[in-house]
């Protein structure tokens, strides 16, 4: 029995132009469109493909966050995950939830659910990963933790019948406390500010004008 655990996060939709709060405590999230982190869609898609290829028996989607995280889990279920785990974290605790905390939560769940995270074949897995100068191939022993790059696959759309079916799939609720994970903030956010705004440039009439500007600035 090999199980795949996939972490999914509800984030501000990638197409939204974010706004910084005037009091500099963070960015405006109320009333802003949220969706599943695009990288997580790719991870779910890969896990579901592994199941379709009979390389995995069960796909479990996990999300840490407030009640709305369940919407993200339903999306994962509609894409083909078998069941969900909602680790309820809300309010101030969620504001300061860091990758370190999420890692500890996922580690606990991976042990509890006896997940192989992503298991494939006979306990050995060959993966190609992106590095700065090109690609690299490594072989890892399972259980293993893999993170998905954008080019791993093209995630499927959830179809209406699958969205309906996803409503019946189980979502278990737990808290970090149930998992004995301490979520005390290790990093304090001092401020969140707008980045410096670039000065408006000019539209040039032709290539000669551009060459002139480049020469003027000493680029050529």
């Amino acid at each position: 029995m090999s199980r795949v655990l996939v972490g999914v996060k509800r984030v501000i939709d990638y197409a939204v132009k974010i706004r910084v709060k005037p009091d500099k405590t963070g960015v405006v999230t109320e009333g802003v469109k949220h969706s599943m982190n695009p990288f997580d869609e790719i991870a779910i898609e890969e896990a579901v493909r592994m199941k379709e290829k009979k390389l995995a028996d069960e796909v479990i989607a996990v999300s840490c966050g407030p009640a709305q995280a369940q919407e993200t889990l339903r999306t994962a279920l509609a894409m083909g995950a078998d069941r969900g785990i909602h680790v309820e974290v809300s309010g101030a605790e969620y504001e300061t939830l860091q990758p370190l905390h999420v890692s500890k939560i996922l580690a606990k769940l991976a042990q509890e659910e006896k997940a192989d995270i992503i298991e494939h074949g006979k306990g050995e897995l060959t993966i190609t990963r992106e590095v700065d100068g090109g690609l690299e191939v490594v072989k890892v022993k399972t259980p293993a933790v893999l993170s998905a790059d954008l080019r791993l696959n093209e995630p499927r759309y959830a179809t209406l019948p699958n969205i309906m079916k996803a409503k019946k799939k189980p979502i278990k609720k737990v808290t970090p406390k149930d998992l004995q994970v301490d979520t005390t903030a290790r990093i304090e956010v001092v401020s969140v500010e707008e980045p410096p705004v670039r000065q408006a440039g000019s539209i040039l009439p032709d290539v000669d004008a551009l060459v002139g500007k480049l020469k003027e600035a000493g680029h050529v």
Binding site: R186, E188, V189, V190
Partner: peptide, 20 residues
């Protein structure tokens, strides 16, 4: 212990103080 990093694809700059 205080660092600045970009968040939201560089559309905000977050200043953080590390307690560790």
């Amino acid at each position: 212990d205080t660092f600045v990093r970009p968040i939201y694809a560089g559309n905000a700059l977050q200043t953080v103080k590390v307690k560790d």
